[in-house]
């Protein structure tokens, strides 16, 4: 058996060496692996489901030879480093990576690059220069909320800011974006700021605690996973419901839909789609195809507006997050935009 495998491997190497290369590199023989560090929440589960949904047809259509997903059991950097080193041995041509640590995998990532493997990191990105990064522009996510509000409330007003988990990089970035937006549209004033930890129950408690001390609030800027809790707090305090920016969670969209049907309530919702894994997949495929791709790319947000609320709600699982899978064309557009 071993002998046969070696024979086959030798034959494969020989044929690859002898056959002339096609002008446009063909990726139908290329193998892509997904190295994922954690699968324990709804966002990650949706991410893995999206990966399956997009890569299975891609493999069937011979776009690539394989797109296998691996998740480490314990969400530890050393374990994921070993996983990446195993992938090098398994002969993958590209590794799509959601990393447990931005730095602790650098040795393994470098080893993969040295072996000629394309490494594309997303969401949890790595800072090893030889890898590609598909990062989220959290700052812009915060700023765009204030920009939206400036259109809805041209005369401005008081804002309540709900922040995420203190000390986490994402929280600092989104909040910095919101404050940048307020500087850009000075008719708005942040009158209160609480930590909602991206959880509806925490957000509800925090908002309920601060509400009595606040003047009239025109709008609430959020980070996702906290909009529904904020709405509940306003309702319980019998105060007028302000414009609450949502974060694509199913319970938030449900609440919005109910308000929309009842009294034409209008807002918007923005977050990162877990399907970003499929964007990383197509970017890896494009790099294998020989395309010139910049090392740092930015993920587009998934924004839901009044008009497409129903469609998004329909495709969102109960208790889940609104999602979108990306296509090869989307990846080409992201790559072109970065140039």
């Amino acid at each position: 058996m071993t002998f046969k495998t070696i024979l086959l491997a030798t034959a494969a190497v020989l044929s690859a060496a002898v056959l002339p290369h096609a002008a446009n590199a063909d990726t139908s023989g290329k193998k892509i692996a997904l190295s994922n560090n954690y699968a324990g929440n709804s966002w990650r589960q949706a991410m893995l489901t999206s990966w399956d949904k997009v890569t299975k047809p891609a493999v069937a259509a011979k776009k690539v030879a394989a797109a296998d997903a691996f998740t480490t059991a314990e969400n530890q950097a050393t374990e994921q480093a070993a996983q990446i080193q195993n992938m090098i041995l398994q002969g993958y041509d590209a590794i799509v990576l959601n990393a447990a640590s931005p730095t602790a995998l650098n040795g393994a990532v470098k080893a993969a690059c040295d072996a000629g493997i394309i490494v594309v990191s997303f969401d949890g990105i790595v800072n090893e220069p030889c890898a590609w990064r598909i990062a989220v522009n959290f700052k812009e996510m915060g700023r765009s909320q204030v920009e939206y509000l400036s259109k809805r409330l041209p005369q401005g007003g008081n804002l309540l800011e709900i922040r995420g988990l203190a000390g986490v990089f994402v929280d600092d970035e989104i909040s910095a974006g919101i404050h940048e937006g307020v500087k850009q549209f000075p008719q708005f004033k942040i009158v209160g700021s609480v930590h909602g930890d991206w959880a509806q129950d925490v957000a509800q408690r925090a908002v309920a605690g601060v509400l009595p001390s606040l003047p009239d609030v025109a709008a609430v800027v959020t980070q996702g996973g906290d909009g529904y809790g904020a709405a509940q707090a306003f309702e319980a305090a019998k105060r007028k419901t302000p414009i609450i920016v949502m974060g694509n969670r199913e319970d938030e969209l449900q609440w919005w839909k109910k308000q929309k049907d009842a009294n034409a309530y209008e807002t918007m919702s923005v977050s990162i789609a877990p399907g970003v894994s499929t964007l990383a997949f197509w970017v890896a495929q494009q790099i294998l195809d020989g395309k010139q791709v910049k090392k740092d790319l930015t993920v587009p947000f998934l924004r839901i507006d009044q008009a497409n609320l129903e469609d998004n709600l329909k495709s969102t699982q109960k208790g889940g997050v609104a999602n979108v899978e990306y296509s090869q064309a989307d990846a080409e557009k992201v790559i072109a935009d970065a140039k």
Partner: peptide, 17 residues
């Protein structure tokens, strides 16, 4: 040795050990 392999560190790098 671990830092030599990974090239940089993380406060949670070796919890499994």
């Amino acid at each position: 040795a671990l830092v030599g392999l990974t090239t940089s560190a993380d406060a949670n790098i070796a919890l499994r050990y």
